[in-house]
Write a protein that binds this DNA or RNA. Structure first.
Lengths: 162, 162
DNA sequence: ATTGAAACTTGATCGTT
DNA sequence: AACGATCAAGTTTCAAT
């Protein structure tokens, strides 16, 4: 794993691509080299399949933190606060939920120190009252394609107009 | 949107593929037809890019529910309880967290009725004490590639051994 | 380990139904 | 809208470095 690998992985992630040709266009690494590197990354278990799911712990992101973040109520606050949370390094998902003015934030970090600085980053955002965080021991399920969570029949019933 | 489209979308999601050729192998729909359908799905905004991210609300899954699920403590309980939660229709992510014996569960459903039956499904699982759910108003951020949440430098520092 | 060029496989297009 | 045949474009391999 070196900087060339990271450039390739980030091109895949940022541009939503997975083919040697397109990765060459983004990174200027020759497609045959890209091909060679992708095979290595697959053997190492860092990328998984054709759509290039990546293994978080193989990437060094072994800790997942889920936080409830409570903010003051105020006109338009939730938009700016949400955006600021989303920009904190390591933050993966941000949900603004019903009821009180609060957010659920999921982040991936490399180590305990980064987890702590993450939470203090949350708390230093303007309008944020308090946070409550828990560490994930096991990610039992994390499906990137929600359509997979449904039987074909249920989904068809909900979707198909006939 | 008809059953043929759903077969194609499920092949993409389940097999982790996105090319007409491979979809033909899984579905027995000729690749030229698959190609035609994929273009339509793209125009409709249901699939987004080369790695085929899907739009949840376009798929009729407009409601996201995030739940805390508390379970009794017991040897090995968390594994079986976690698996059972993961199998509930619509459940997308299941995390087993530190501290008390509890889970964070994120689900996508079509309507309010399905949301309610979802929560009662949780509560009917053996060893589960109680649940606390909130509805998502806005998904501010949901990044499928966590590597994107990091600046190149931070990630390189954490990953590269030199 | 890297790369340019060759060989091969696949995706995209087109015309017919 | 569906699909078989065709063509363009891509991926994979290979030999040289």
């Amino acid at each position: 794993m070196d900087k060339k690998d990271i450039k390739i992985l980030q091109a895949i992630a940022e541009e939503g691509i997975n083919s040697p040709e397109k990765i060459e266009e983004c990174t200027d690494i020759p497609k045959s080299t890209v091909h060679y590197r992708l095979n290595q990354l697959r053997e190492q278990g860092i990328i998984k399949n054709d759509i290039c799911d990546m293994d978080l712990s193989e990437l060094g992101l072994s800790i997942t933190v889920i936080s409830e973040v409570y903010a003051e109520f105020g006109e338009g606050y939730h938009e700016t606060v949400g955006e600021e949370l989303a920009e904190v390094e390591g933050v993966n998902q941000v949900y603004f939920t019903m009821g009180d003015t609060d957010f659920i934030v999921i982040a991936n970090v490399t180590d305990r120190a980064m987890a702590e600085s993450l939470v203090s980053d949350y708390e230093s955002i303007d309008k944020i009252d308090r946070t409550s965080s828990r560490f994930v021991i096991t990610r039992v399920k994390n499906e990137s394609h929600p359509i997979n969570d449904f039987g074909a029949d249920t989904l068809a019933d909900a979707l198909i107009e006939e």
